[in-house]
């Protein structure tokens, strides 16, 4: 019942899907993984970005990927403001930051969900572009072209961000803050400024990620709930804050999801990432792929 062909196809699809998951998780890998911000609203931000892309594509006929790039600066500013608010109300006051921070971001996620429902309705939305709906035949398999596009763009995005974090001055500063905030302060830099910038970047990459989300499949306002599992599963499995880890973890999740889907059917799909996440948290909370 489970042939080699099917397995191969599942692996190929899984890798493609996994790269896409890396793209939607990589922002969280920065905000939660590096900065320790309990960003549970990350998937809600992602879906919001998808709707912005839908708005531009549907109303002005802009290519979804281009639309994703266009909204990136807006998201960056949005991220800066969100971190400011979080910092002023929770991190600076110290005590209880974790407990109330989670409730805060969950509340934000909820508000975004409802606003999207009120404005766009509960129906699924999708975008149109020349590469959506076509598929290529590779080695006897039919691979949807949109998954290929998502794969390529996601790979580029992940690469770009990890180069940014390891090669540029600001990127290295972000890593330094994540490792030892006090040391950065002693060197005369302002860690809050750096973290705010990093959170801005983490939110900005959601522009393209959101475009990919709505290219890969139709989007509805409560889709963020499924992506809480996927994104946190990837980031935790990766070992908090590791960019290459994020890519590998996302591919593992992609393959796992595809295999379970082919073997047991779509009704089990929502549980895979959450079950994997639960297993990792219970057994190896420092992540499968090592510490940061």
């Amino acid at each position: 019942m489970f042939s080699m062909d099917l397995l191969l196809e599942a692996v190929v699809t899984g890798v493609l899907l996994g790269c896409f998951y890396a793209a939607v998780s990589i922002g969280l890998s920065v905000s939660f993984g590096l900065l320790d911000v309990p960003q549970v609203a990350h998937p809600a931000f992602l879906v919001m970005a998808s709707y912005a892309v839908f708005f531009l594509n549907d109303g002005y006929d802009i290519d979804p990927l281009l639309a994703g790039v266009l909204i990136t600066p807006l998201l960056f500013v949005f991220g800066l403001l969100a971190y400011r608010l979080y910092y002023e109300t929770f991190e600076r006051r110290g005590t209880d930051a974790a407990v109330r921070g989670i409730a805060f971001f969950f509340g934000i996620a909820f508000i975004i969900e409802v606003l999207l429902i009120l404005y766009f309705g509960v129906d699924q939305r999708s975008v149109t572009a020349s590469y959506i709906g076509k598929s290529w035949r590779i080695a006897g398999m039919r691979v949807p072209l949109r998954l290929m596009v998502a794969f390529a763009v996601a790979g580029g995005l992940t690469l770009l961000l990890s180069v940014y974090l390891s090669r540029t001055f600001m990127g290295r500063a972000i890593r330094a803050v994540a490792q030892d905030e006090e040391a950065v302060r002693l060197m005369g830099a302002n860690p809050v400024r750096i973290k705010q910038w990093a959170f801005g970047i983490a939110t900005a990459v959601l522009g393209v990620a959101g475009a990919l989300l709505i290219i890969v499949s139709p989007v509805d306002p409560t889709l963020d709930r499924a992506y809480i599992g996927r994104t946190f599963c990837v980031v935790v499995m990766a070992g908090l804050g590791s960019m290459t880890g994020t890519l590998i973890a996302a591919i593992i999740l992609g393959i796992a999801e595809t295999i379970v889907l082919t073997m047991f059917g779509a009704s089990w799909a929502p549980a895979i990432s959450f079950a994997l996440l639960l297993g990792i948290l219970a057994v190896r909370p420092q992540g499968l792929l090592g510490r940061r």
Partner: peptide, 19 residues
């Protein structure tokens, strides 16, 4: 687990049970 990990884990429990 501490803090947010506990919270995320409890969401995961919910989805797994629901599924």
């Amino acid at each position: 687990m501490q803090g947010i990990f506990f919270s995320i884990a409890t969401i995961a429990v919910t989805i797994v049970v629901e599924t």
